[in-house]
Simulated scan of single mutants.
Amino acid sequence: MNELLDPRNDFVFKRIFGSEENKDVLLAFLNRTFAESNEPPLSEIVLLNPYTDKDAPLDKQSIFDIWAKTSEGKLINIEMQLFNKYDIEKRTLFYWSKRYSSQLQEGNTYKELKKCVTINILNYSFLANDRYHNVFHLREDHTGLALTDDIEVHFMELSKLSDQMLPHEGGLINWLLFLKGADKSNWEVLKMNEPTLGKAMDTLEFLSQDGEARRLYEERQKFLHDEASMIEWATEKGMKQGIEKGERQKAIEIAKNMLALGIDLSLIVKASGLSEKEVKAL
């Protein structure tokens, strides 16, 4: 039997959670996620960019985030990050704002804007606390008064989970332990706690035995490793060259190094923090 594919690979993650036939898996995961932020359960979810065979691992047009919408119109974006692309907080707000503002068509009023939720699942540590699941809203500093409920950002850090954290009841941690790659010998316990996880496990096992799926997975895995290495190299070189020149100059150095390597414009924008217009001007 072939070794299991890594569900943290965004290509595999979308196959498991972002396909029409596994919409019940996504719904169960989201309900456990929202239960931890004291929100009512969802009864229905619509996939806005479901997985299809056109989602090629090396195609720059393929989007491996999962975009969904609730029956009330709330928008949800789920992103799996295997490697640290840096400035995740700024990237999150940037893409959240694009999703939020894209709702408003000509002639519409601001009242028609619906809540947007971003869920980042990270394979590395980011926040300076021990919580594996952190939820952010927009609130007043002193009183905790909410300005609006329209923005909600989740960070799930798989690196903060231990295989010894095996739970005795249902909840989000079961899903995250599955994604982290907890010992398969624990699957029965996780599935007993969260029955819908069984379908996610079956999907992963099927993909792991499918030759074409494995080939596509390995292509994507190599791409992700190469991308992470290039970003890390360019970032380190840019920081060394720009250490005396201030933050903006460091960002410019990073962008120039990545341009020289022929890295995709969108990745340069993410890694450097510069705008697309500023990168093009270089």
Rank of each mutant, 00 (worst) to 15 (best):
S266H: 11
R8Y: 02
L261Q: 11
S97D: 10
D24R: 10
K74F: 08
K270M: 13
A28R: 05
M80K: 10
E205D: 03
E20T: 13
L93W: 05
R215A: 14
S43L: 02
S19G: 06
S275I: 04
I78N: 03
E72G: 11
L166D: 09
L216I: 00
L190T: 07
T70I: 11
K250L: 12
S71K: 15
K280E: 07
D264Y: 15
L147G: 09
L26Q: 03
S101N: 13
I45G: 05
N123M: 03
E44T: 13
E278A: 14
E227L: 15
N22T: 12
G211A: 08
S162Y: 05
A213W: 03
E212C: 00
Q103D: 13
P7R: 07
P57E: 02
K184H: 03
M258R: 09
A56L: 12
R214V: 06
D183C: 04
D55Y: 00
T52Q: 00
F64E: 00
D65G: 07
L47Y: 04
F29E: 03
T118F: 12
G242N: 01
P40V: 10
F29C: 02
P195R: 03
E79M: 08
L138A: 13
F155P: 01
K270Y: 13
M192P: 00
Q221H: 10
N134R: 07
Y100A: 02
V153K: 05
E278I: 10
A146I: 11
F206S: 11
I268H: 06
F136K: 07
T196V: 09
N38T: 07
F13Y: 08
P7I: 08
M80P: 02
R220Q: 09
G273C: 13
S37F: 06
V153E: 05
I263E: 09
F83C: 06
G246E: 08
G273E: 15
Q249R: 13
L93A: 12
K256V: 13
E253K: 14
D150T: 11
G171D: 09
W96A: 04
W67P: 00
S102V: 06
A251K: 15
E253N: 14
K237W: 09
G181W: 02
M165D: 15
K111N: 14
I63V: 07
Q105K: 15
Q221W: 04
S159G: 00
S62P: 09
L82I: 08
Q221R: 10
N22D: 09
G273T: 11
M156I: 10
E218C: 07
D53G: 00
R139M: 12
V269A: 03
M230S: 09
D87L: 15
L161F: 01
L204K: 05
N2T: 12
R248Y: 15
E278W: 03
D264K: 15
L197I: 07
T92W: 09
R32Q: 12
D183R: 08
K98F: 01
S229G: 04
V189D: 01
R220K: 15
H225N: 12
G18A: 01
Y51I: 01
L5Y: 01
